[in-house]
Design a protein around this nucleic acid. Sequence first.
DNA 1: TAACTATTTGGCAATATAGCCAAATAGGGG
DNA 2: CCCCTATTTGGCTATATTGCCAAATAGTTA
Lengths: 118, 118
Amino acid sequence: MCKNSETKESQTARYKARAKIIKAMAHPTRLLLVDRLSRGESCVRELTDLVGDDISTVSKHLSRLKEVGIVEDNRRGLQVWYRLKVPCVMDFFGCVESVLESNCKAEPLQQIRIGRDG
Amino acid sequence: MCKNSETKESQTARYKARAKIIKAMAHPTRLLLVDRLSRGESCVRELTDLVGDDISTVSKHLSRLKEVGIVEDNRRGLQVWYRLKVPCVMDFFGCVESVLESNCKAEPLQQIRIGRDG
DNA sequence: TAACTATTTGGCAATATAGCCAAATAGGGG
DNA sequence: CCCCTATTTGGCTATATTGCCAAATAGTTA
């Protein structure tokens, strides 16, 4: 009703803030991490084994997810445990799958066209 | 039940494909475009006016959204009309808002801590 | 076909991201 | 305190993304 009091700048800032959160999800490794954490807490060593990258790389991915508020951490002794703070990010998966499905229906035709032209 | 027949490679490929779609959403301008298109078809000129960037920039954002199957285009005369192909991407907004809300509750305390330490 | 409008593409410089290694930090136990 | 394990941070290079301008393409109309 009265949301039009928004300036151009605040609109830009709002879309930037939103994009930052989505950007944090926009990486295969971070998606895998979020997927794993949706099934319960895990520590960095365990997540590193799952991902297969260097532990420093995994740690940086986790801190990026933490920075935007998707996960939170909690040190217990030597280990740092991560957990999903905002589980609704899992909803992304459902929609992403339906985009992929919708693409599967369409792409075979494109494949043929590309094949003939190239 | 029998989804464990997935290899490491196919798992990686699957997360990459998912990340590519999310990545297409992970930009303030593209979020704005998707938001606008969720309210109905629009042409490049109109979207360019909305965004305020160069038309070539907007066109590239649109083609990236199209490439991953989020929007589709349709030329009618001189103009190309874009529309949202998979409306469920709008669900991203709801979750993103709840991440932002959850951050608003937590960050004031962090601000104080940072203020004292720095 | 030439002129015109709408959009896309190529090319480029600036900036951001990824992932590794090495070094630093955090906590536990002799 | 020193040593050990777990994690984070700094620094680096390679790669990707962004957004502008200029040029190319698509379609309309005279």
